[in-house]
């Protein structure tokens, strides 16, 4: 599904000098995999995730996504590909404070080509599937952290992406809520969704089928 070749991300420091965040990254990821990326702070985990999620465009190297050469795509084409194929879950949930749960779920659909009735049906299904129908009219500030992240995951998958990227999805949750989210990820993966998560937690990483270790921008270890 994903093939990265000689990928690097750097920032200019002075004349002809650069600070490398990622170096010589080569990764192959198959459809249906559940990958955990680990490493200390500043290792480049989040940067890698945002490159995979096509939020970051300042990298060099080759990136193939389901046979599409992302490195040849223009920014707008990458955005279209991202919208069609990728969902994102954030550590800080990033729900829109001024929208209700229902509207937060509706918003990614409203940016895609769904009719009003299709959107209503999909939101209703998702609310049902995540068992948050009773919370549909509440605002994010009226939910607990776990509930907010649940909505965050629901929003990430509502448009039926092929790949789910999660950046420290349980970082702001207590252990019980974290486990619920990880179980949800496992379930989604079992249903066929490819998942890549960034985590500091060995326990959370164990939900994945493979772990990639990063340090100072280099891949130091690949574990099955």
């Amino acid at each position: 599904m994903i093939k990265l070749r000689n990928l690097e991300r750097r920032y200019p420091l002075a004349k002809e000098k650069f600070f490398y965040v990622l170096r010589d990254i080569n990764i192959d990821i198959q459809e249906g995999e559940f990958i955990s990326i680990m490493g200390p702070s500043g290792a480049g985990k989040s940067t890698l995730l945002h490159i995979l999620g096509m939020h970051d465009h300042g990298w060099r190297g080759e990136y193939f996504f389901r046979e599409t050469a992302v490195h040849h795509l223009k920014t707008k084409e990458r955005a279209t590909l991202r919208n069609e194929q990728i969902g994102f879950v954030f550590q800080q949930y990033h729900l829109l404070d001024d929208l209700t749960v229902y509207e937060n779920l509706d918003i990614p659909l409203s940016y895609r080509r769904y009719s009003k009735s299709e959107r209503a049906a999909l939101v209703a299904d998702t609310l049902d599937r995540f068992q948050i129908v009773g919370k549909k009219d509440l605002y994010p500030r009226q939910l607990s952290g776990g509930q907010q992240q649940l909505v965050g995951v629901a929003r990430a998958i509502i448009a039926e992406p092929k790949l789910l990227l999660a950046d420290e999805p349980t970082g702001n949750l207590h252990s019980g809520q974290g486990e619920e989210i990880m179980e949800l990820f496992r379930k989604l993966n079992d249903e066929g969704m490819t998942i890549i998560q960034v985590t500091h937690s060995e326990k959370n990483a164990s939900y994945g089928k493979r772990t990639i270790q990063l340090r100072d921008g280099w891949i130091t270890k690949r574990e099955q």
């Binding site: 939020h55 707008k76 955005a79 990033h94 829109l96 990614p108 940016y111 929003r155 448009a159």
Partner: peptide
């Protein structure tokens, strides 16, 4: 800015 970033991440184009 957070809201704008999220909307972009969720698929809104700049024009939108």
């Amino acid at each position: 800015r957070h809201e704008m970033a999220m909307r972009l991440a969720l698929g809104a184009g700049r024009r939108r």
